[in-house]
C-alpha cells in the first residue's frame, strides 16, 4: 500500500489531499503509520513496530490497522493495491 505522492501530512496531524482538496485530522498513531507507509514499510513491518512500542494485543492491532487502511482508501489517500 502506497501513500499518494503529493499527500501532505504535517506534525500537527493535518493531512491535505491535493488531488481531492479534502483535509483530514490524523491522530498520533495514525501519523506514525502514514510515515511508515511513506517509507514503504510493509503491513507486517508496521504491525511489528507498533507491537513493540504500544501496549496492545496483536489481534486488536491487526483489526484496527485493516480498518485504518480501509479509511485511507476510502478517502483516496493511498493508491489502491495493484493486483
Amino acid at each position: 500500500m502506497k501513500v499518494k505522492k503529493n499527500v501532505a501530512l504535517s506534525d500537527s496531524g493535518f493531512l491535505f489531499n491535493p488531488s481531492s482538496g479534502e483535509s483530514y485530522s490524523v491522530n498520533p498513531i495514525g501519523q506514525e503509520i502514514i510515515k511508515m507507509l511513506n517509507e514503504e514499510s510493509s503491513e507486517e513491518e508496521i504491525i511489528a513496530t507498533l507491537l513493540e512500542k504500544y501496549n496492545v494485543e496483536r489481534d486488536t492491532l491487526e483489526k484496527d490497522i485493516r480498518d485504518f487502511f480501509g479509511m485511507l482508501e476510502l478517502y483516496g489517500v493511498v493508491k489502491p493495491e495493484e493486483a
Binding site: S10, S12, G13, F14, F16, S23, S25
Partner: peptide, 11 residues
C-alpha cells in the same frame, strides 16, 4: 494559505 486553515483546524 492552507497553513492558516490547518492552524485553526488543528490547534
Amino acid at each position: 494559505d492552507l497553513e492558516e486553515f490547518e492552524k485553526i483546524s488543528t490547534v
